[in-house]
Write a protein that binds this DNA or RNA. Structure first.
Length: 117
RNA sequence: AUAGUAAGUCGGUCUGUCGCGCCGGUUAGGAAGAAAAAGGUACGCCUUUUAAUCCCCAUCGGUGAGGAAAGUCCGAGCAUCAUAGAGCACCACAGCGGUUAACGGCCGUCAGGCAGCAAUGUUUGGUCCCUGCUACAGAGACGAGAAAGGUGAAACGAGCACACUGUGGGAUGCAAUUCCAUGUAAACCGACGUCUGAGCGCUGCUCGCGCGAGUUGGAGGGUAGGAAGCGAAGAAGGACGUGGUAACACGCCGCUCAAGAUUAAUGACAGACACCCGUAAGGGCACAGAACUCGGCUUAUAGACUUGCUAUAUUU
RNA sequence: GCGGUGUUAGCACAUCGGUAGUGCAUCGGCUUCCCAAGCCGAGGAGGCGGGUUCGAUUCCCGUACACCGCU
């Protein structure tokens, strides 16, 4: 099983991200908000926590790393190629188990979206 | 011993599983294609071989957040603006002496106020010639005869800063700046101007100097990607010696020091140990994340340690 | 990352270092058959912690929060 998450799997570039957020569809998998868009090429993921809710940088880093690890360990369950953004939207700092559950739920939902299309 | 006070040091460690950025090596593959050689040609060029270089996959090795990385409050390096500057304005500092690349920092020291039994801490500190202010109260507040009493923070002698003196400061900041790529059209409405000079060039104003025929507002439209700056050695830290009360300076020692990302790496989970609280079960383990780089200051911070000094008590 | 601005009553804003005002809102009264408008009156404030000063919203230092600009 491949758990690696190299840089080519991350969504980069200011312009690409702007365009992605303009066109992308979104849904909520508490405490995450998921924005997605079908991709022709490989799957790329963006992960962040908002500065307005978490003023201290180390808290944002911590949450970003939790979400990233949860995605990394479950990425093989995701089918198809997507551009994907996960951002944290709860005011509280929640433990890893909660974040992991939310990511799994989001991946299941993505798979069912793919069947529809 | 307890309490206090000052200065300084540190601010977790290890193991397992799965991962990330950067640098270097190796193996395999791919892209583009300088140059050379050979062959072909319709003389435009085409094909093949070797292969610097680059990209990517795999793998191995190295390395990877702080004492405050924070606030952005000071001071510098560095970069651009004109190989033309001057004056004013503006801003900062302010006992005295020293220190430094520099500083508003740091060290020593003097005087006053406040807190404390004390060690000590904290705070203020150029000048009143000119200009201005001193409410209420008071006959009168810097103008005027004086004194006593009264008022008032202050009553003729002053206090203070917006005043004066001395010293220093050009402006803007890495979103600086340089290179590559991309974009930069015309027309329309308005303002100023073409040597009687609009505007631009070093910031606010004035002068001076240079360039100068177009400049500018509106409306509308477009680009905003990559590389360098940006990472090993320098105003660096440490040991020892000398000078100095000290900050610090000098000498000497191959003693130490390799993050460099860019929606942004430096991690996630599990376990053990150490430490703290508790009889135990058990619980706790701070503040906090590099973004060009240094020197300071300020603010946040669980806990641990070292040394000096002070007070109190006891013992010898 | 760098630079700048603000915080005064429930809201929007004033105020050379000398008793903190104005408008709207709120409450009470007058007026009206009742309401609105109008008139009279009342309550209510300097983000927080220090310093300078006889005296601080104003000057200085620290701190918290909010906002703006950059190519």
């Amino acid at each position: 099983m491949d758990y690696s998450f190299p840089k080519s799997g991350k969504l980069c570039g200011k312009m690409r991200i702007d365009a992605f957020y303009r066109q992308g569809k979104r849904f909520v998998s508490w405490p995450l908000r998921v924005t997605y868009l079908p991709s022709d090429e490989a799957t790329e993921v963006l992960v962040w926590a908002p500065k307005s809710l978490f003023k201290r940088a180390y808290k944002r880093n911590r949450l970003r790393r939790l979400m990233r690890e949860a995605y990394r360990l479950h990425q093989h369950e995701l089918e198809g190629n997507w551009l994907l953004a996960l951002n944290y939207m709860d005011k509280e700092e929640l433990p890893y188990a909660v974040v992991e559950k939310a990511v799994c739920k989001a991946i299941k939902k993505m798979n069912s979206e793919r069947v529809k299309e």
